[in-house]
Design a protein around this nucleic acid. Structure first.
Lengths: 352, 352
DNA sequence: TTGTACGCGTTATCAC
DNA sequence: GTGATAACGCGTACAA
């Protein structure tokens, strides 16, 4: 009798196409609960059953359904991250490290791209939340009211990366952009420079770029110095712009003796253009950049720059958000130190 | 009476925390089915109800739960893509375009990275499938037996990108790597070059690199030419390696008059190193690369290279996989044309 | 056009 | 340690 009943109750299950956990349970002769436990809490299942179930899983090639799991457990095991761009030097390195760190802790990274567009970023955040991410890694700390409100209503944790603000309410992982630039200014002033120009990265929806610019300005102010408006220009993220803007800055008078660039590509463009203008670095002019990509050291003229361990930013951000999710105590942020890498594009200010 | 019944039936729903669609339905005074339809099939709902429901949704700030939706509809609206690397020139451009194209058609891109590691790629594929992606975009077309089997068993479509093989069973979107290199060889031979060297990208788990190398070899063979083993070297993806390998190739005798590099960074390294060795391009030597990044044209010496519209690869791959999902007829692949961009690192072979 | 009711595949809370 | 079984939130026949 029992057997007959078993079979008749199995039939309808078998007709349910080639589904999952239930199948495994049936074949292994255990309950669905046990199969689930083998996956999520192996220690709570006896050795014997566990191996048996694992064999069946392997044999059937069963892959658990993440959607069902998410629906039932209210966790997806996915972390969302929104970056302005994905292929750009420091972000790319951070993303790689983030992915590795998350994978190591059994989380998946969901990447979105905001293109430095505030509205788009909010859209992306919504999509990620809709997708059920357990936490969010954002870049920067300045956002619109709408966005702030959206985040506040959220029941999931989020952190800011690539910025560091000691007294921010929400955790930050990143360099102190302003301080990094201040150190660069100190270095240049110590070389005797007094007239500065800046090829800044555009500030539009980019508080890191703004912080770098402000860092330069404030540091200079401490020495009683300032960059004249015409010698302060803005560009995006390309060599071509670095070239163009160098000419623009050098056209001002009196000519600056040191030019600070807001990112790596702008610096590379500036240095290349200087060479074409037969300006000898660092004899006639000093140029510095921000971020240390391979190019900064491999070009004919290695460029002095600020180095930030972006991979550490990525890894720590990943670890931090997972810690927050798993209720670790250490939910503070971290300031990633920056460092001035002196190469051959900086030297004593020319005498005039 | 009716009112009282309504209220008493609403109470238990209200106690169910701050859930979703049901809430919206209750507040809007419609059924859950209607709310669902407003989202997934708006035309089938009367104007009046639709706007009312939309207002309530907005007011409550409700975000549909993707997991529940996926579980119920058996589609996630997510496409998985596995790339060897994410931040690398052509891949980065393709990824950007892919994301945009997918977003335009209301799909989300789930990105994974295989690091040119076959085993890791299979792991990533499994994870993406577990995550319920509706389709898969892969790179290349050569894979292990295990992997092939895994894909065959899959019930979701997948395509190969960055390769093109006219008689492949599964759709491809990409350049014909071998043909692109063959054209480059034709060009160099037409300039009088007869002695060639090659700084290839390593072939490990990279059939595109292999195809490029084979393309060069076969094209040369047609002219009765060949690259001597010592002049055929391999590197990864860095300027430093391009530098080192150039010296290696130039140490062979007789010295090649033309050197073909397997990617952009290797070419840049080679060109920079040549300059440091006081070798004048193209008078003494011709060097070409593969892939056209900004650097290839902005460096002091613009580099002759193969240009492939990677963004088109990304966009077309995205459109193709979605077409396959949505049952469009046009499920063939596409060959993305490549083009030789002649710059200043190539010229007539030196006379000896 | 709109509403009812069931099922999607898993987790988790109970009993045993 | 193990097994029933009720959620989880949404889509969708089917009925009205």
């Amino acid at each position: 009798m029992d057997k007959q009943i078993d079979q008749s109750t199995i039939k309808p299950q078998a007709s349910r196409k080639s589904t999952g956990l239930r199948q495994v349970a049936a074949v292994a002769g255990v309950s669905t609960a046990t199969v689930s436990r083998v996956l999520n809490n192996p220690e709570s299942v006896s050795e014997g059953l566990r191996t048996r179930v694992l064999m069946v899983i392997d044999q059937l090639g069963w892959v658990p359904n993440a959607a069902a799991r998410a629906l039932s457990s209210n966790r997806t095991g996915a972390i969302g991250a929104i970056f302005p761009a994905l292929g750009v030097g420091d972000f790319a390195r951070a993303i790689d490290a983030m992915q590795d760190a998350l994978a190591a802790r059994n989380y998946l990274l969901l990447l979105a791209r905001s293109r430095y567009d505030a509205a788009l970023e909010l859209v992306q955040a919504r999509k990620l939340v809709e997708r059920g991410v357990d936490g969010l890694i954002l870049v920067g700390s300045t956002r619109s009211q709408d966005y702030e409100q959206f985040l506040r209503r959220l029941s999931i944790p989020y952190i800011n990366s690539f910025v560091f603000d000691a007294d921010s309410a929400i955790p930050c992982v990143g360099p102190d952009n302003a301080r990094a630039m201040a150190e660069m200014v100190d270095y240049l002033v110590s070389l005797g420079h007094r007239r500065f120009g800046m090829i800044a990265q555009t500030n539009r929806n980019n508080d890191r770029a703004a912080a770098r610019r402000d860092g330069v300005r404030d540091a200079l102010a401490r020495y009683g110095l300032a960059i004249p408006p015409q010698a302060m220009v803005e560009g995006e993220w390309s060599i071509a712009e670095g070239r163009k803007l160098l000419r623009q800055v050098l056209a001002t008078s009196p000519r600056p003796t040191a030019i600070i660039c807001g990112n790596a590509l702008l610096a590379i463009g500036a240095v290349l253009e200087a060479a074409e203008m037969h300006i000898v670095l660092p004899r006639d002019l000093s140029i510095v950049g921000y971020d240390d990509t391979e190019l900064m050291s491999e070009l004919p003229q290695p460029i002095t720059t600020v180095r930030v361990a972006s991979d550490r930013v990525g890894k720590l951000a990943a670890d931090l958000i997972v810690d927050m999710l798993e209720g670790q105590t250490s939910v503070s942020g971290a300031r990633i130190p920056s460092e001035i890498v002196v190469r051959s594009t900086t030297g004593p200010a020319p005498q005039d």
